[in-house]
């Protein structure tokens, strides 16, 4: 094994065609997207791709040597599996470079019906150890897995050494602090969940209300946050909410920070990570263009000379300026965070 020699691929988000083009133009190696239905974990109002848009996007990306992955990463129900299977069929037919799957029933379907289509394991499968990865590789032929944001970089290094499955990790954007795919907080409060409905804190349940100059955020009537005047706001997700425990009020689960692993890039290269994933399919093309440009510059700089690499101040402030809470963290990649 020769870790650190191969330049990892920048995997960029696109919630619509303009964002996909922005990602490709800004130097994204790969763009990931979902279809406009319940089959993907960003099933938000007005977001995602129709068949025609996906077709155009894939042609656009391929013409510029970029790849497109299609996320079909929620779990089908037992009444009608067709939104999920037809999404996989469509990804295959349109020439997607990989499908990103979480549910074993879908991995099995894709393996049987589209054996030539590359299968990646979604972060929603929450596979954070090599035994699980090797199982998915042996049974369903996965080539790559996206790590849940609960493992340290040291552990990722160990996992990489014991599996032939390529490792992809999140490096930038919204930080899910729970093991993805194993969090039901959203359905506990709103009735809709990432696994079943492709949404976390769905907009239909969110209400922003102003109360004595402060901004209150309610989720299906449950008060989940209160922002002082001028205080940076965060997404209305439960894990970034303010609650009370042990008589103290505050961010009981996680501060509203965004993930930013720019400063760890040489270690990430050395850990043998193949894919660097940027979160943000819900963001605009401006966000995608800015963030992908910064990461492109950083990855190229690190690949050219990992020893001399340093995260530049303007990269860090550029990412902070657009991020949730206006601040960043390296999350679970560093043990101290836990």
């Amino acid at each position: 094994m020769n870790p650190g020699r191969e330049k990892p691929e920048l995997v960029c988000p696109a919630g619509n065609l303009p964002a996909l083009k922005a990602a490709v133009d800004a130097g994204g190696d790969t763009v990931y997207l979902g279809f406009r239905n319940v089959s993907n974990a960003r099933n938000f109002e007005g977001l995602n791709f129709s068949r025609e848009e996906a077709k155009e996007g894939i042609l656009y990306a391929h013409a510029r040597d970029s790849r497109v992955f299609v996320a079909v990463n929620t779990s089908p129900n037992s009444h009608d599996i067709s939104p999920w299977t037809s999404s996989i069929d469509m990804a295959s037919e349109l020439g997607a470079d990989a499908v990103i799957l979480a549910d074993i029933a879908l991995l099995d379907y894709a393996k049987k019906h589209h054996p030539g289509l590359r299968r990646h394991l979604s972060v929603q499968a929450s596979a954070g150890n090599y035994e699980a990865l090797n199982f998915y590789a042996r049974e369903f032929g996965i080539k790559r897995a996206v790590m849940p944001r609960i493992v340290t970089l040291d552990t990722i290094c160990d996992i990489h050494a014991k599996t032939c499955v390529e490792i992809e990790i999140f490096v930038s954007g919204g930080l899910c602090v729970m093991a993805e795919g194993r969090c039901w907080l959203s359905s506990y409060v709103t009735g809709d969940s990432p696994n079943m409905n492709g949404v976390c804190s769905p907009a239909h349940a969110v209400r922003f209300e102003e109360e004595n100059d402060s901004l209150e955020v309610k989720l299906d009537g449950v008060l989940i946050n209160r922002f002082a005047p001028g205080e940076p706001a965060a997404y209305p997700t439960l894990c970034k909410g303010r609650f009370e425990a042990c008589g103290m009020q505050g961010h009981v689960m996680e501060d509203p920070y965004s993930l930013n692993a720019l400063e760890m890039l040489p270690d990430i290269f050395a850990a043998g990570v193949r894919g660097l994933k940027i979160e943000g399919r819900q963001r605009s093309k401006h966000y995608v263009r800015t963030v992908v440009s910064i990461w492109r510059a950083a990855v190229d700089a690190c690949a050219a000379d990992p020893d001399a690499y340093q995260a530049r101040a303007e990269w860090m402030t550029g990412l902070d300026a657009m991020s949730e809470g206006g601040a960043h963290t390296t999350g679970a990649y560093v043990d101290e965070w836990r």
């Binding site: 944001r149 609960i150 602090v177 729970m178 093991a179 194993r182 039901w184 996680e254 836990r338």
Partner: peptide
């Protein structure tokens, strides 16, 4: 049991 995290709350 609703969630698991890396962090101990």
């Amino acid at each position: 049991p609703l969630t698991f995290s890396a962090r101990c709350y």
